[in-house]
């Protein structure tokens, strides 16, 4: 090691935006715009029977109609909103619970840490579906909230396990010992050193979790454990289209495309974030 500077502040090479981040961002952005738009405008009112039954796509009904003659585009737009709301809610809840438990476990004594790690493994093995059924059974029935709760809790176990591993690695660094010697107490160590250093990895994970949450929401709605009508969820659209999938396949294809485009968008976005956060891309050493 020498005493001369390795890189000067200005010499950092300009990093171009990785393409997955751009494409992923565009796809997610598109859904976001549609979801926001659906709050103020949809082609038709949500429950109205405005056309013939099981019509294909046309200029009047861009995505066709369902078996009751309701406009599918309207329902898919509202589905975007539901997907994003449940996804956001579940990831936020999962992050809150998961990061808290993960950081506590990283600080805990050996025995408590072992107990927490075992509990997390059990929770991860526990199917989200079963959890959702339990939550629905112990509340007033399925709603947006039960979906958020079930998906959020299931996701929190994965976040907690990741946080625990990341935080433990940070806690073993010399700068943590230096902080203790400087008189910084544990809450300060978490706030000043642990969170800022694990945040980039966590954010990438949250984006991935978001994609999983969107799929989980569709699955729960498909099984009738998601948001009830009139909330149009993609999962429920798929379920309703199932009976007529041979005669009117577009009823299943349209919500399917919506679901896939959002999930791919989120996954690309996560990949792009990971690439952008990679220190070897930014630091030339």
């Amino acid at each position: 090691m020498s005493d001369t500077p390795v890189v000067s502040a200005g010499a950092r090479p300009k990093s171009s935006m990785p393409w997955p981040l751009m494409v992923g961002g565009l796809l997610v952005g598109l859904h976001l715009v549609i979801a926001l738009l659906s709050l103020v405008w949809t082609p038709y009112a949500v429950g109205d029977m405005v056309g013939g039954r099981l019509e294909g796509p046309s200029f009047v009904h861009w995505a066709g109609t369902d078996r009751l003659g309701r406009d599918l585009m309207t329902q898919i737009m509202i589905g975007s909103r539901i997907a994003l709301v449940v996804g956001c809610g579940a990831v936020a809840l999962g992050a809150l619970i998961g990061v808290t438990i993960g950081v506590l476990a990283a600080f805990a004594t050996r025995t408590l840490d072992d107990v927490l790690a075992a509990a997390l493994d059990i929770l991860i093995a526990f199917p989200t579906l079963l959890l959702a059924m339990l939550i629905v059974a112990s509340s007033d029935g399925a709603s947006l909230w039960t979906a958020i709760l079930a998906i959020g809790i299931a996701g929190s176990a994965i976040v907690a396990r990741l946080t625990r591993i990341l935080a433990k690695r940070i806690l073993s660094m010399d700068y943590i010992t230096a902080a203790r010697i400087s008189g910084t107490a544990s809450p300060g160590i978490v706030r000043i050193h642990v969170l800022p250093n694990i945040w980039p990895t966590l954010i990438v994970n949250f984006a991935l979790q978001f994609g999983l949450a969107v799929i989980a929401e569709a699955s729960l709605s498909y099984l009738g454990l998601g948001a009830p009508p009139p909330n149009a969820s993609w999962g429920r659209l798929l379920q309703e289209a199932q009976a007529s999938v041979y005669t009117a396949p577009f009823g299943a294809i349209a919500p399917g495309l919506a679901l896939v485009s959002l999930v791919i968008g989120l996954n690309l976005f996560a990949d792009g974030l990971r690439e952008a956060a990679d220190p070897t891309r930014r630091r030339s050493r």
């Binding site: 090691m1 020498s2 005493d3 500077p5 390795v6 502040a9 050493r285």
Partner: peptide, 11 residues
Amino acid sequence: RRYPHEFSGGQ
């Protein structure tokens, strides 16, 4: 104003 990675080991 700078970050640690901008410095050499001795610095």
